[in-house]
């Protein structure tokens, strides 16, 4: 679709939980420095798809997968792969804001310390401050870095979670309905933030909110019953979807 080399290449991805097939032969190429929105009714497999990208589905005992996911031409489901290293490169933000029960500073510093235990104090502080700034949170929390992360409002907590991910310098950021638990004002702040982030990262967003998908995405993938029905540039897909089901979904006939 574009000259840009693709960042993630998904080929014939099928996923089962026990005997239930959650994804059917999904193939998709995801491009760097862009936001890819994943839409579809609940239960369509978009969250499952997202969680395959950092192998978080491995935690589910009944999970089974076929097909390939290549990140930078490396198949992350190769047996010798260290999942921990994948997750360092592929950050994730969850539906419910989930800061750790520690101070704001420690929330952001935690991952950095874990990955680099010998980091110097000044260096660590720089990273934390920089991450909070990039997450548009710095101005709101700079006077209370030692306060528990749980004391923030929902929207602030979610931005703290984004800062926490940015601090460990991932290249890909996965967001699983990051705004569904937030009010409109916080949602707008996060959308603005995502817009800035796409300059430096590959961003995948699962969203329930069509307007949001339209506003922020460069590419949109539409999932239905485990199939990737349609995938393309956001502008094209929204204006003239080629599939009937996409059209129906966009028109609000089901959801």
């Amino acid at each position: 679709m574009e000259n840009n080399r693709c960042k993630i290449k998904v080929k014939n991805l099928s996923v089962w939980y026990k005997s239930f097939q959650a994804l059917r032969e999904v193939s998709m190429e995801i491009y760097p420095q862009s936001i890819t929105g994943l839409i579809g009714p609940s239960g369509c497999g978009k969250s499952t798809f997202l969680r395959c990208m950092n192998r978080l589905n491995d935690l589910v005992a009944s999970f089974r997968l076929e097909g390939n996911i290549d990140i930078d031409d490396y198949n992350i489901y190769k047996p010798e792969t260290d999942v921990v290293m994948i997750r360092r490169k592929v950050g994730m933000v969850f539906q419910q804001p989930n800061p750790f029960p520690m101070s704001i500073f420690d929330n952001v510093a935690f991952g950095v310390r874990e990955h680099n235990p010998r980091i110097k104090k000044g260096e660590l502080e720089d990273i934390v401050i920089d991450s909070l700034k990039r997450a548009n949170l710095w101005d709101e929390v700079k006077d209370k870095l030692n306060v528990s992360g749980l004391s923030l409002s929902g929207g602030q907590q979610q931005r703290l979670c984004i800062a926490r991910v940015l601090a460990v310098s991932p290249e890909i950021i996965l967001l699983d309905e990051p705004c569904s638990a937030l009010d409109p004002v916080s949602t707008a702040k996060i959308e603005e933030l995502l817009f800035h982030l796409k300059d430096s990262y590959t961003v995948l967003v699962v969203t329930h909110n069509l307007g949001q998908a339209r506003r922020i995405s460069d590419y949109i993938g539409f999932f239905l019953n485990g199939n990737l029905v349609e995938y393309g540039k956001a502008a094209d897909l929204v204006v003239k979807p080629s599939e009937k089901s996409t059209e129906d979904y966009l028109a609000g006939n089901f959801g």
Partner: peptide, 27 residues
Amino acid sequence: VPSAYREAAYGMGISKWRTIRKIVLPS
């Protein structure tokens, strides 16, 4: 301990034991 803490830590590339040591046990 809420599983959201574990997921968040795993999602950041923290190994299982470090997640238990640093996140689960303190909580």
